[in-house]
Design a protein around this nucleic acid. Sequence first.
RNA 1: GGAGGCAUAGCUCAGUUGGCUAGAGCACCUGCUUGACGUGCAGGGGGUCAUAGGUUCGAGUCCUAUUGUCUCCACCA
Length: 897
Amino acid sequence: MKRELAKQYEPGEVEGRIYHRWLDGGYFHAPCDPDKKPYTIVIPPPNITGQLHMGHALDETLQDILIRWKRMCGYDTLWLPGTDHASIATEAKIVAAMREEGLTKEDLGREKFLERAWDWKKTYGGRIVEQLKSLGSSCDWDRERFTLDEGCSRAVREVFVNFYNEGLIYRGNRMVNWCPCCNTSISDAEVEYSEKESNFWHLLYTVKETGEKLELATTRPETMLGDTAVAINGDDPRYAHLHGCHCILPLLNKEIPIVCDEHADMTKGTGVVKITPAHDPNDFEVGLRHHLPIVRTFTYDGHLTGKAEKEAADALLASGRAAENEPEVLDCGKYAGMTTMEARKAILADLEAGGYLKYTEPLKHDVGTCYRCHTDIEPMVSKQWFVRMEPLAKPAMECVEKGEIKFVPERFTKNYMNWMKNTRDWCISRQLWWGHRIPAWYCADCGAVIVEKEDPTVCPKCGGTHLEQDPDTLDTWFSSALWPFSTLGWPDETEDLAHFYPTDTLVTGYDIIGFWVSRMIFSGLAHTGKAPFNTVLIHGLVRDAKGRKMSKSLGNGIDPLEIIDKYGADALRFALATGNSPGNAMRFSDEKIEASRNFANKLWNANRFILMNLTDDEPAPHIPANLAIEDKWIISRYNDLVHDVSNSLENFELGIAVQNLYDFIWDVFCDWYIELAKTRLNGEDAAAKETVRAVLVYVMSNTLKLLHPFMPFITEEIWQALPHEGETIMLSPWPKFDEELTFRAEENAMERIMAAVKAVRNRRSEMNVPPSKKAKLFIETKYRDDFEAGRQFMFRLAYASDVEIGEGFPSDGTVSVITESARIYIPLNELVDIEAEKARLTKELEKAQSDLAFVDKKLNNPGFVEKAPEAVVNGQREMREKCLAKIAMLEESLGKL
RNA sequence: GGAGGCAUAGCUCAGUUGGCUAGAGCACCUGCUUGACGUGCAGGGGGUCAUAGGUUCGAGUCCUAUUGUCUCCACCA
């Protein structure tokens, strides 16, 4: 039982050993026991390409705290882990690696490419999982999932087909955000805006009918070849005479109509706008309203279109199978094949030469970029698959309005609602290979579109066998949206699904409320009829010590693995939980992690002390008979701690729970109780020794349980070394607040003794009396019993050589120390300066009198006495009594001098 | 343009439904080989809680405005 512990805590040696013991014990596995209440969290699946960063570390720490706490509370607790295939991110990395070898996707072909991708997943997907383990995450690894595994893929297919049949998924030509670097469409949510320097180019288009020059400005002159109209506002008096007229498009000498549209804002610029339906989201809408031709002039990889592209498009249009809004393609002639930037230069040069460029105005504006590669986004009309959002968003908003899902902190509800309200149809197809392939087939014979759960071989319309599957894959977030139920076996009605779904708490950063949280909510409601979780706990981002976002480009990222290596996973977790309040950003600094490491070490040493005092056959934790006053005090304080920590956890106030634990362990237990305990431990009374050992073990082992969710490794290691019952602290029952363990009278008595100790120390320190110089203490008090009980502590804690409790002590050659409950004379003869004593006591008296005045002001206010809660008023009355007592003693002492 | 956060000690931040005269860590100053710990112990200095109003018996906490700062969303011919 008894074990020597090292002088300093060495996390490296402990953590791996303990984690394996937990794994071997199967403690993380949720049994799916129908008799127990479930508590479920699904992990936000990290990307397989990812490396553990501080954001993950925070996210996982918060989840593990909740999970370990609920598990100890007796829930059938499931923390379901897994990873995300991260289509764009992964594909981009593999393509980049292939480029090193001089290979392209096309060189390999789809099948070989996917083989590579799966190899990649095997290598790196495992890495992030191992990193999660090093944090101490108590995930049920038996249930680990991957968004592209068989089950998740089946769920994706089910959802796609159902939505398609319900008309909630459709395919069409729409304006999408195109990334010419990733070569794929991306959703609105995936566009990031950043400010860039550019220009307004003021162009002149000639009006055919009047010959006048119409001035308009553009930031994107390279799109002008695709202009199919010029818009003015119908109410604009400046251009009333132009209704029904036409412009001659420069360079192409093409006639295009002047249309009246509300999009043209009279107050901006000249009030004239060029309309390029194929390459601008607003212009696309204008084009639809006025039935303008849609003329595409860019290729999907960011070049200007030429003869080949035009011929292909013409053929499609001629075939009669083109979808609605199928764009025409322009052969851009001399500009064909140029990149958009090259084309901008060439076209501007030609416009200037032709006298069509009036002037250039410098401008800073926000440009949309791809959130993965930060290439400028090209708005393009393109044929894609979309999810119709309006019918899905409605119930998703209602469910949050009705409180079925609660955001913590609440203010993020607004964020969510805002996103849901403004969202447009979700573009879900991606021109990528790594992902869930769209389950749609096109019949080459009749052009039918077939969307089915099983791969079709024959066209159901014409019986033809020339079927071709859509080459595109789905947005990564399409499968993540199903994560809370696809991972539990949906669409099958599994036991896991019945028991663990809906899940309970979702923990994530505010940055993916739109990407992920909202999509899980509408998906859960649409497919399972239930909200996928009841609480969304939002945390902020982890920033560096200067408050900057940690990022690769800044190179200021702190690697959590290095921190674990140096300080231990417990210290990292504790640092991340400390001072963390929901939704707020937190900075990570060396001081913080060092403070946490020091705390772990403090805890470790407190237990070294306990262990070195225990006997070889120390009994299991229990509350012994014959408790001393200080035992009742610490047990009562501990009991309050149980209440406070439990309460804070219930309210997701993890930072407050951590603070409570820190203060109790360090200030209350170590700095006071252990010191108080030494008196008996070093004494000769065997029975008293037995009692104090039992109290030390009882309070410590239970406090370890409260701390366990935050610092799982060290608490397990110490708990095992102490007398204990059960295999692991992980599965020991969470302490309960017990009315029987509240001893307020003893708490008050101890407070009086401790106040006296502090006052003596303070006085001695002020007078520069070293601890080695002991002095006798004369104590006058009306709490005689309390001080009799506490007299023994005066020797150790207040440097007393002797203690006398009584009355009428001499004031000559002594200093008097006055607390609310006692006057203590310390004979320090040669050190005493009567004048200084007078001055000090006078100052204290003034302070006490002003304190009294402060209290009286409140108590003399009828409004306060009538309206404030009784407890608050009584508190003030007690305070008044204490002030009066102190004043009386101070006055008496001054009188004696 | 819309929405939201933050503003508290030299620094980084807590402060739970308004209720003892505002706390912690770090830094700073003074003591200490106190038989668990110097990653420690004891003591100390340091804040008119951004500004101005308001509600209330009572405001760091709630409301309004202002200033500074950060973030998100939208728009940008």
